[in-house]
């Protein structure tokens, strides 16, 4: 396991000198990358390092900034990779990885719903879990306030 991780780390540092590469205590390679290179990084790990199976794209709201967490598996090498990308919360735009991993499509749409992150180059940028006409904000942001009117209990008068 760790051999592969070392190899992956080496290749990543070699290719992208700017990124922070580390290994978590659970045996996953973790990459902190600036958002500008996410598309290149994704293409590189997909094509060169055989990380072919994207399990999830998770957004996290750290109040000052948003973070996107990609978890990718290599089904061939039994390795795991976590890519973390910080995104500005006011102007949250990041390149989509859906052209690289098709399965990212829905996960990114979900992040779009929940955090208001815009994905550039996403094939189908529409709300997925929230209603199409939802105007109430992005629920998983920490500053979200539910502005819907309180539901009154309905009684039937006889």
């Amino acid at each position: 396991m760790s051999e592969i991780n070392e190899k992956v780390k080496g290749r990543l540092i070699e290719q992208f000198p700017g990124v922070e590469v580390s290994e978590t205590e659970f045996g996953q390679v973790e990459v902190k990358a600036p958002k500008e290179i996410i598309a290149d990084l994704a293409r590189f790990v997909r094509e060169e390092l055989d990380f072919d199976y994207l399990t999830m794209v998770a957004g996290v709201d750290y109040i000052e900034y948003l973070q996107l967490v990609y978890h990718i598996r290599s089904l061939k090498d039994y390795a795991e990779l976590i890519i973390k990308v910080d995104v500005d919360s006011e102007n949250a735009v990041v390149a989509s990885v859906a052209p690289i991993w098709t399965g990212a499509n829905w996960h990114e749409r979900e992040a779009m719903d929940m955090f208001g992150i815009q994905f550039e180059g996403h094939p189908d940028p529409r709300p997925i879990l929230l209603p199409e006409d939802w105007q109430g904000g992005h629920p998983l942001r920490k500053d979200f306030i539910d502005k819907r009117p309180k539901r009154e209990r309905q009684f039937r008068t006889r």
């Binding site: 999830m56 957004g59 978890h71 399965g103 499509n105 979900e110």
Partner: peptide
């Protein structure tokens, strides 16, 4: 928990 993200298999499968 600060954040819980649930990676649901059906979500990916349905896509």
């Amino acid at each position: 928990p600060y954040r819980v993200k649930w990676r649901a298999p059906s979500f990916s499968n349905l896509s």
